[in-house]
Design a protein around this nucleic acid. Structure first.
Lengths: 327, 327
DNA sequence: TTGTATGCGTTATCAA
DNA sequence: TTGATAACGCATACAA
């Protein structure tokens, strides 16, 4: 390619580097020849000497959960805008993310974003050794000093508890997700503690898969008992489970929401705000969380051990209302 | 690293290559040292000499359309399984995919999958010159000889038309998506031609954004007219639009589906089969389509100009029924 | 089976 | 501003 354009090989490199010192004339000549020959600079070779690949690994949970696909979409948009690319990994629901992360580390990515994970400290060590910054997105791993960007799950859970209590609910059902997940734990903790402080102790907790079917199935089995034993209010730890709940409650038990039973979710996914649902929920400000993540990755030190706790937005919705509000 | 383990550099390379000739003893020693030092082979450097990066670019439409996120999920799973990775790109709804594809070509990926695209022939030339195989997924570009994996959209549209006609519908509304998109065009063509053959000519076509809001908004504006002017049946070119339609029809006009109006979609996304919808639709067999795509990419010649037309599965659903069926 | 030498395509260093 | 040269980390051809 270099000799095809009649220039030296470094000249080609400079022609494609906007801030290199080269005469406009020569640059144009190179660029023209490149177009002619269908030449495109090879990012890999470049990364080998520059030690920056312009690639960021994003390891997410199953993309059939809208929260993950929405997040990924925002990540891709934002990285693309800064001419970086997303190397996408997905970790199956119950799978350990260590193997996946190991796979990601084989690529000299400029950073790793984990939106779903049970990371072991060995992996953290490994990534540190390789000098690859890791940011936990919507996940926290207490032991490690990993940089974390997270919605204030505890406060969000608390807000929903207050709202449900204010609406007059007396018996509560909490539908937890992955018991290992920090997200689920924190939301439930905030919810539980707040109810306790309010003196509402009739609280039952059950678990379900952290997806639509999990929410649906949990309702099917719990509402198998006779009606007097049904709760007033349900808090599902995320919207997609709440949607599963809503469909099961309406479709199989003829319950109206919120007239017969209150329901709240968490995440604020688009789907949850559509006509049939209008969930009362807490929205995770994904855009903001993503830009905080980029910010951390752009820091020279990889933003080590910085914790960014971002408040969620309470969306009133229509699935939690006081009797007075709808009677 | 090589001298840290007390071996030559190629020995390290061989240790990590399962089918290289090296004594088990030496391999173990290298692997042990690697674990110790936190060493991981660099895929980029490897790709530089092997001319295979183990990366495939997947360029998709907005991931907030479940069809794209479901497809991406399947791609990621399948590639991960064969220890290849997905470099994810997203092209905005009306944006040209040329720039995005250009960006992708800078990475020496082993292939490019386009799930949404208006590719120009220049780009095709460029990718050919670079020896990077391109597969169109759920899209066809007539002029170019690009490898294509596609559901039989025309046949699917035809099947839905027959079903709606059989259910007794007399006036039809077709909600098209992106007018440029081959997918939308083919589905509508199949639908339209079949109705014509059946002698049902009362068919109106309108356009909407190819997403939830597009479907919702289209209904809101079309049903502004008085009721006698409403159609019997609606065919939305994809499920996410159909879901928007359903929500708008029920929520704002009090219409029941299928009692008052018939509705059909296309794609067979999960969401469309949930309780509130149960869309009559044609499922694109994503798993099958993805494995066909991998198959093409694995072929030495990049599967040039092979067209794989895969039949869709008609899902009966509950949104298209003859009067007799529900009276 | 092993090590030496070379090349992959780019950037960084240095001298011109 | 330029060009020659040496890395970058790995894989392969070849000789041992």
């Amino acid at each position: 390619m270099a000799r095809a354009a009649g220039v030296s090989q470094p000249a080609v490199s400079r022609a494609f580097n906007p801030k290199a010192s080269i005469t406009k004339e020569k640059r144009d000549r190179v660029l023209a020849a490149a177009r002619e020959l269908g030449y495109v600079p090879n990012v890999f070779a470049s990364s080998l000497s520059k030690r920056s690949s312009k690639m960021v690994a994003v390891i997410s949970g199953n993309l059939n959960n809208p929260f993950y696909s929405e997040s990924l979409q925002v990540f891709v948009e934002n990285f693309q805008r800064t001419s970086r690319q997303v190397l996408a990994f997905s970790v199956q629901d119950q799978q350990s993310s260590d193997e996946v992360m190991m796979e990601a580390l084989r690529y000299p990515v400029d950073g790793i974003v984990m939106t779903s994970a049970k990371v072991t400290s060995e992996m953290v060590k490994l990534s540190e050794g390789l000098g690859i910054p890791v940011v936990m997105f919507n996940r926290s791993v207490p032991g490690t000093g990993l940089a974390t960007v997270q919605c204030d799950n505890r406060a969000g859970g608390a807000a929903l508890a207050r709202r449900m209590a204010a609406a007059g609910a007396r018996s509560f059902l909490v539908l937890r997700g992955d018991p290992q997940g920090s997200t689920s734990q924190e939301r439930v903790a905030g919810f539980r503690d707040t109810l306790a402080a309010l003196g509402r102790l009739d609280l039952e907790e059950i678990e379900g898969g952290s997806n639509y079917s999990g929410g649906y199935a949990a309702i099917m089995s719990r509402f198998n008992r006779p009606a007097p034993d049904w709760p007033d209010a349900i808090f599902a730890v995320n919207d997609i489970m709440a949607i599963g709940c809503a469909d099961a409650l309406r479709g199989n038990f003829g319950l109206r929401i919120p007239e017969d039973i209150l329901l709240a979710g968490f995440d604020g996914i688009r789907e949850g705000q559509r006509h049939p649902y209008r969930l009362t929920t807490v929205r995770q400000p994904i855009e903001r969380m993503v830009s905080e993540t980029l910010d951390i990755l752009d820091q020279p030190d990889g933003g080590e051990s910085s914790l960014r706790l971002i408040p969620g937005d309470l969306i009133p919705g229509t699935t939690v209302k006081a009797r007075g509000e709808f009677l």
